[in-house]
Design a protein around this nucleic acid. Sequence first.
DNA 1: CTAGAAGTTCGAGCGCGCTCGAAGGCAAGC
DNA 2: GCTTGCCTTCGAGCGCGCTCGAACTTCTAG
Lengths: 158, 158
Amino acid sequence: MSTDALIEQLLAAPPEVGRSVVEALHQLLDDSMLDADDDAPRSVAEAAALVGLTAHTLRYYEQQGLVRPARSPSGHRLYRAADLRRLVFLTRMRLSGMTMHDLTRYVRLVEQGEHTVDERRRIMLEQRERILRRMRELSLALEVTEYKIELYGGSSGA
Amino acid sequence: MSTDALIEQLLAAPPEVGRSVVEALHQLLDDSMLDADDDAPRSVAEAAALVGLTAHTLRYYEQQGLVRPARSPSGHRLYRAADLRRLVFLTRMRLSGMTMHDLTRYVRLVEQGEHTVDERRRIMLEQRERILRRMRELSLALEVTEYKIELYGGSSGA
DNA sequence: CTAGAAGTTCGAGCGCGCTCGAAGGCAAGC
DNA sequence: GCTTGCCTTCGAGCGCGCTCGAACTTCTAG
């Protein structure tokens, strides 16, 4: 995904939710930093901070086969730009509700090479359906929620 | 929420996702049936079928204080229209990511009467933020997903 | 050289929201 | 009246995705 697209996402965010603009900016920042390809490898804690996960979780993801950072001679993990980009991808997909199971399956396919693109596309098509479905569920709930808010005197606290 | 609003939701759903229109219609149907106020009380299994949960889950919700159906002389649960409407509300909010904890807190407030509307509004305002935030996360993931689909030859399977 | 921070592996534990099964009671059709 | 099936309560179990702690090693600042 391009940084431009991310910026558009940012701008598309409704203005009344100030707090999360900061957060979105943070995400944007992540991507920029990753794109900057300043190829000093990061430690597990640094990588975790950049993508907004814990070091524990990064090790867990590795154990699950989602990412495979290089190692220093002494065995410490070295996260490079490509690893960080993958982590951002993983985080986005996890946040959208893709299960660990599907994600590991997908990553395995990616690592098996080009002949797996058919199945990869199938996975992503299914994932798109799930996302759209979740969005419709959220719309429904948003409506209920706003109805209740109105009922209780509106956002203003009147 | 009005049935009209639900119909609008339905129509607003993108046309390419045929399968879930059926599902949305099902939800709509639920509401109509509940609104029909055909006041024959339903058994736990009937109620479960109507709202799309299991009988086990309905009993669990009751145990958590989310709903309190009347009982027959012999102790069987009797779900009336009002109970079913509450169940639909609960289901929507659960699907939108509201936790059991927040939902029980909210329901407790409702049952405590009018003097709790301030806190109820606060809960719903927070919930709205969470929903909007989730929607933005989903948009981000949707974009990644569609990018991958395009990369793999598009929806058509080309 | 040394203290302390941060890294490693491993396996156990946890919070959430159900989900299930056992043991027994009630209801409706034949 | 009996059979069949749904109802009741209760407590245990489960799947997911982390999350944590122990025990040990390595790096870094002073």
